[in-house]
């Protein structure tokens, strides 16, 4: 187990290296640079800036320089948020994004699984159609529609919750972002759980459990849900990585100081180091959560061997 995790994390290093290399050159190939502002800088200033940030060196030298810094854990300074290093930006933003994302993830898993089970057990009855309809609606309404609507209804019209802002992390400020982020995920988890539960309830071993007069709870939760949860687990891995690293839509609309906004802004402003930092952080999250998924899989299904 420990050996397996170590091995998996070691094999992630080449993947990360590939991602870093790909992203590095991709950004540099693109036209423009961090200091090509709308009002051009004086040539002298430009030259100085380029020298400070080593942008005057050949590309391969910059690449090695970046890799060297990275190996020491230094993500470099941000080009756009001039007073901050990339690491500082993440140190302040990541906890915020993780709070919102984790809330949404828990909400989505709990609500989605419950709705999915309820729907599957009432297959082809009105309750099922209702839940499936809502779930379909959930995956079709984009967050950038839900977010302003929720903010308008609960924040402006009803005045129950703050329409936006972070309020230094007061819980009332987190509710709307979490709900917004969770809604589409609830819909997906519901549909996944429903499908898997229906299949599980039709399986032969569930027939056995029913034939042996086991309690409905045992049949549904102990036997059916354990196998039905597997597709949800595989979905939840990448979804968790995406949620915890912040959502650009939710953070922009509610004005939350997370890391979700960085990437687009950084990419638009050619903030090379911040783009790289974001890519690396997200890739690490994805790798870690894929590993978690595999561990959970082995925990749930004895036929899966780690190795």
């Amino acid at each position: 187990m420990f050996g397996y995790v170590t091995r998996r994390l070691l094999t992630a290093i080449p993947t990360l290296f590939l991602i870093v290399t790909g992203a590095f050159f991709l950004i540099r190939v693109a036209p423009g640079g961090p200091f090509n502002l709308e009002r051009p800088l004086e040539a002298k200033v430009m030259e100085n800036l380029n020298r400070i940030y080593h942008l005057d060196k050949p590309l391969w030298e910059q690449y090695l320089y970046y890799l060297g810094n990275l190996a020491r854990g230094d993500f470099g300074p941000s080009f756009v948020y001039r007073d901050f290093s990339v690491a500082e930006l993440f140190a302040s933003g990541l906890p915020v994004s993780i709070q919102i994302g984790a809330g949404a993830l828990v909400l989505a898993l709990v609500a989605g699984t419950l709705l999915g089970i309820a729907s599957a057990l009432r297959q082809n009855r009105p309750a099922d159609y209702g839940i499936v309809g809502l779930a379909t609606l959930g995956i079709t309404i984009p967050t950038f529609v839900i977010a302003p609507l929720l903010s308008l209804v609960f924040g402006v019209w009803l005045g129950w919750l703050p329409a936006g802002g972070w309020g230094d992390g007061a819980w009332s400020y987190k509710i709307l972002p979490i709900v917004t982020l969770a809604l589409p995920q609830i819909a997906v988890v519901t549909r996944l759980t429903r499908g898997a539960m229906i299949e599980a309830m039709r399986s032969h071993h569930i027939r056995t459990a029913r034939a042996y007069g086991l309690k409905p709870w045992t049949v549904v939760v102990v036997h059916a849900l354990r196998s039905a949860i597997l597709p949800v687990v595989s979905y939840a891995g990448p979804a968790a990585a995406a949620l915890l690293t912040g959502s650009v839509v939710v953070e922009t609309i509610f004005g939350i100081p997370g890391v979700g906004r960085y990437f687009v802004q950084a990419a638009l402003n050619r903030d090379y180091t911040l783009v790289m930092g974001t890519v690396i952080v997200i890739a690490i999250f994805i790798i870690v959560f894929n590993l978690v998924v595999d561990l959970l899989y082995a925990l749930i299904d004895p036929r899966v061997r780690l190795g």
């Binding site: 056995t208 029913r210 034939a211």
Partner: peptide, 21 residues
């Protein structure tokens, strides 16, 4: 209370009738 206690059943599919987990 009756099935599994007083009336029991075995099935055709030995490979899938037991919960694999």
């Amino acid at each position: 209370a009756v099935r599994g206690a007083k009336i029991t059943m075995i099935f055709q599919e030995p490979m899938t009738s037991l919960d694999p987990l």
